[in-house]
Design a protein around this nucleic acid. Structure first.
Lengths: 339, 339
DNA sequence: TTGAAAGCGATACCAA
DNA sequence: TTGGTATCGCTTTCAA
């Protein structure tokens, strides 16, 4: 094995010119005779010369690679973000180095460490649930490498952010429930320390408030894992309350699935007796019966936007400011809320 | 911007030692005094020294990065493979550079080109539907970079392969349908040029044959896009045949969903009147009602296996042989086939 | 046990 | 228009 590609040096030697001339000819610098250029290019073509990109990157101190870190690849929303990111990156001649944290801070630190110092030109990250501070992210900034946060972010880490408008989306979702006549709306939320959960909670509260509906702490349980099981569990607990809710706004479609399953197990009619609303518009939302109303977050678009921002920063040699870009979401109405 | 990290040279200068000693100390070479090692390591730690990985890679002529190319990231099976690959890669200190082809050969060539010549130490690829020859893949081999094919592969491109045993899995699936009493079993297949489709078709045929059941060409339509719409369409066509089938073995859960939807639209009872079997065990299979029987392919395991193989080849400085590693699949029985 | 220096492959500056 | 050479940061051989 290990047949090696030819190098500039080989070309120079064979053609009886200097390495620098060969380099300039290949890059068509002005100040090189047409003749030489043709000579070198023909030779390179014929011998299938491909510049060693590590050497080029080393010299130029850049990699044409963007780091991307997500909590979970196996998650329809994140995989669509990744897909959009790859597409946009390729358009600009960049590539994506992908890391995964499983929502664990130590994994996130490891992934960052592995991408630091020369592996990537910039970072796209959606932080884990455990991430509270950002020393490990600040290191990129300290190296002059721009960072873009997307979806799950740290508010006090000042970088450009590309997010779903969780507040607004939650507001719309709950508002829809209200318009459908539900009055005792529960919200199965996530961990309060996670910004997105907090924002959805705020949107939920505001919608209730604007409609003059009651807010009850006991109607807002918090999932640790955003799992189907928790949805099932919380649905059960809430419906056994003296004052049970008549609708569930769930932090995620998966949680909504758990809720639906509990309701089904109890023979409770959706949407007639209880309304259910999810978030994210996974394929399962469409497949559940009744179909689950939810919020489409346009992950592909989010991935593209994040990459485009990062590439622009790289072009401008800038680290960016603390702007927030919101990707429009869409309320998807299916049967689960059509009271 | 562009504060730069400290380099070995800085450490050496500050500590009054040579660069080579500093390098050796950090890598704990034998033949370096404990004292020096401690001195250097402490200094490095304190000043947050991180080696410039481009320089290291350049010097060592390796990148500690594995290229991975898949048809589609937004696909539960592939995203679980990716997830497994990242996990295994990290265990060995490698990283994953991810490319996506959208089932298009030109995209695949682009992705390969971008990974060639220094970006990766080896390649993991699941080829696109359009891929028939392998010049673009051979280039990796020619550079001494091992290639592993997984899931979708080219039989005549001789590399290690990690796959689902499509033949066996299909056989088991169809056999289950037969045992449940279905007798006129249709198979909604994929493109025949794709090896996986062909193998599933063979497994299907063999199961029919072993049971002494009739094989009818008209009961085996071929999807171009493996889409829900095609499932719907073909279900309709097949059920309007003079001799309609009484069960559908579908190339994918998504296709099965289309079939289910058509059956539902016609008020046809599953599994009582018609049995339906999918392939891949997506979350939707569990959520459909009735629940869809299917085949679990263990993507995570497949991703880990592919990476482990590649890492081993890299360690052995080998390009590997033409072995095939089959990842066990499991038949998942739900209601859709319980006649 | 340590230092000096070559060299990985490409680029770019200074001379000629 | 071209050549010579330093350089990027690190590893590794050869000498001391």
């Amino acid at each position: 094995m290990d047949k090696r590609r030819i190098t500039l040096k080989d070309i120079a030697r064979e053609l009886g010119i200097s390495v620098s001339t060969a380099s300039r000819a290949l890059n068509s610098y002005s100040g090189i005779s047409e003749e030489t250029i043709k000579l070198v290019k023909d030779y390179a073509e014929k011998h299938n010369y491909v510049p060693n990109s590590i050497a080029v990157n080393f010299r130029r101190n850049r990699t044409m690679t963007l780091g991307m870190i997500v909590p979970e690849v196996v998650h329809p929303f994140f995989s669509s973000i990744i897909s959009g990111a790859i597409a946009a990156a390729n358009q600009h001649g960049y590539r994506i180095l992908l890391g995964q944290t499983d929502e664990k801070l130590p994994n996130e630190k490891l992934a960052c460490r592995s991408m630091l110092s020369g592996s990537v030109d910039g970072l796209l990250i959606s932080v884990s649930n455990e991430t509270k501070d950002f020393e490990h992210l600040q290191e990129f900034i300290d190296e002059g490498k721009p960072v873009i946060q997307f979806d799950k972010f740290l508010e006090n880490f000042h970088t450009p952010k590309v997010i779903t408008d969780d507040y607004e989306s939650a507001y719309e979702a709950v508002n829809h429930l209200i318009k459908q006549g539900y009055r005792r709306i529960a919200h199965i939320n996530g961990l309060l320390e996670v910004k997105n959960s907090m924002d959805r909670l705020k949107g939920y509260k505001k919608a209730l408030e604007d409609a003059g509906l009651e807010f009850r702490e006991e109607w807002v349980p918090h999932c640790k894992n955003i799992s189907e099981e928790e949805g099932y569990q919380f649905a059960q607990e809430l419906l056994n309350l003296p004052q049970p809710p008549d609708a569930f706004f769930c932090i995620t479609d998966l949680v909504a699935l758990g809720v639906m399953n509990y309701l089904k197990s109890q023979g409770i009619q959706v949407p007639k007796q209880i309304g259910v609303m999810g978030f994210s518009n996974w394929k399962i939302a469409e497949v559940m019966s009744p179909g689950l109303s939810t919020v489409e977050q346009h992950g592909h678009q989010m991935g593209m936007k994040a990459v485009n921002l990062l590439v622009q920063l790289l072009k401008d040699q800038s680290l960016g400011s603390n702007e927030t870009y919101k990707i429009d979401s869409d309320l998807i109405i299916r049967e689960s809320t059509l009271n």
